[in-house]
Design a protein around this nucleic acid. Sequence first.
DNA 1: AGTATAATGTCACTGAATGACAAATGTCAA
DNA 2: TTGACATTTGTCATTCAGTGACATTATACT
Lengths: 206, 206
Amino acid sequence: MNTIKFLPNGDTQPENLRERKKRQAQAAIEEAALRLFRQKGYEQTSIQDIADAVTMSPRTFFRYFASKEEVLSGLIHTIQSDGIRTLVHAASTASPHTALREVFGYLAGRYQEQRSNLYIRHQIAMQTPSIASLFLYALLETEPAICEAVCSRLEPARDRNEIRFLVAVYMAALRVSLEEWLEYEDSRDLVSLLHSHLDCFSTDTN
Amino acid sequence: MNTIKFLPNGDTQPENLRERKKRQAQAAIEEAALRLFRQKGYEQTSIQDIADAVTMSPRTFFRYFASKEEVLSGLIHTIQSDGIRTLVHAASTASPHTALREVFGYLAGRYQEQRSNLYIRHQIAMQTPSIASLFLYALLETEPAICEAVCSRLEPARDRNEIRFLVAVYMAALRVSLEEWLEYEDSRDLVSLLHSHLDCFSTDTN
DNA sequence: AGTATAATGTCACTGAATGACAAATGTCAA
DNA sequence: TTGACATTTGTCATTCAGTGACATTATACT
């Protein structure tokens, strides 16, 4: 994992020429790559193709993305990381459900903002098992961190494994909602989709 | 997905010399590969290393396993496929929970039989994100088929998306149980671990 | 301007995976 | 047993992802 840090700039002031160029380059690569992936398929598109499309050396491609795959999974990584950050900075609550509803609500919101972006990626993933696997992992790999954050903000110590399962269930809900939501091009509301699944579950256990 | 079909022989009769040799070769590769993966790490072990260890050409390795990864994930694929098969051949029931409890119980049983085998693989996966991703996918990719099988044996047609979520929750339980169970070398009982998680859930919704 | 710093390009290399074809090995029947 | 046939294996060449080293070029700063 050696990529450029998905160009920070949450603070939006002294933007260098250098930094602007880097931003542009990264965006250009991503755009070209996605276009080519859709046109010719992920596996049929070589790094050389992408590099040609943005007139840079293949070597430079790897200075922006650690791998071909990361062009696709970067978005999910970013959103999931942000989700964890919100959880860490949130106030403690007695119920894990409250915390989890909040994080997963936040996540669903963020994904919702990126619908068209995600739709393209999803299309590619459906034709490319290795990419589907990648996306799944990008979601589920954040479970331990979420678990950790939830446990640490619980005064009465709960069974760690119970929480693990709980987080996994919330993740399952997010995952299924996302799939359902991306299945057709005309979108419904992801957030309410997520909540409808969660309602089946969280009425009792608290 | 072009590998040899994980050498069938559920029927155990006219075993050729050829077939015996193939079995041996496959077993030898798997054994050598796992040993090397543990000794030197997955990524530090090249196909050449494995081929050398069993005195065959690297080309032949790929006639037994479609990729280096498949040496590790083959076991999971096999078990999951068997699970789906049991579900397809089972009798219809009114409740999806009944069917799902049965399949996931079966799966947990199968994994339990393979503990030491899985333990090694899990060790490797923990040091190698791409392998963790692979294992996750090997589990979750079977969700659609399970979903399909469950829906088809339900007389009163239920909402497909509801079932999807339900299957995902069962899968989450299996996944978390497996992790918990493989965490320490001295095993507890996977099946009861799974059931304890499921009990949190399936008391109400039916 | 000129120097330090960071980005890019070039080159060479490893390793995974695949296709094509030749060589070796197992099968089966006469 | 031999010989025809099918299957498995080895060899060779090739493509492509990814990486390290180092020279070259562009930006930044004083």
